[in-house]
Amino acid sequence: MIPVILALGAVIVGGGLLAAFWEDILGFLKKAIRKVQQVVEGVLYGSKVLIRKLSDGFKEISRHYSKLGDVWQETTVTRTVPASQVPEDIRKRAERCDELDITDELEMELQSA
């Protein structure tokens, strides 16, 4: 899981197609977190990011975990992207499973701004 503070404060360093993909994912995650902060009450702890193959393109899924009192809530924010925006390696792995969890990989790419 990527803590909220890390996600909002991070950048992706480096160039190339792969870095562009992670940058785009990070941008989506930041937007999603801000959206979730508007719609949920309670403390937002962290997020996961997954990719799912569709018949046409891929779905990027971010899941955000918050707690108000004793009640946990999961808020899911999704968007659809074309296949050309997903690097080949990730595309192939996503095609072999229902949902590919890329949270840990994204967290490794994050560096503090």
Binding site: M1, Y65, W72, Q73, E74, T75, T76, V77, T78
Partner: peptide
């Protein structure tokens, strides 16, 4: 972008993420 919410039990929340 679409948004969907659901409530989790403590066990489900623990299962979803470790940290």
């Amino acid at each position: 972008i679409t948004v969907r919410k659901r409530f989790l039990t403590e066990e489900q929340a623990k299962a979803e993420f470790k940290l």
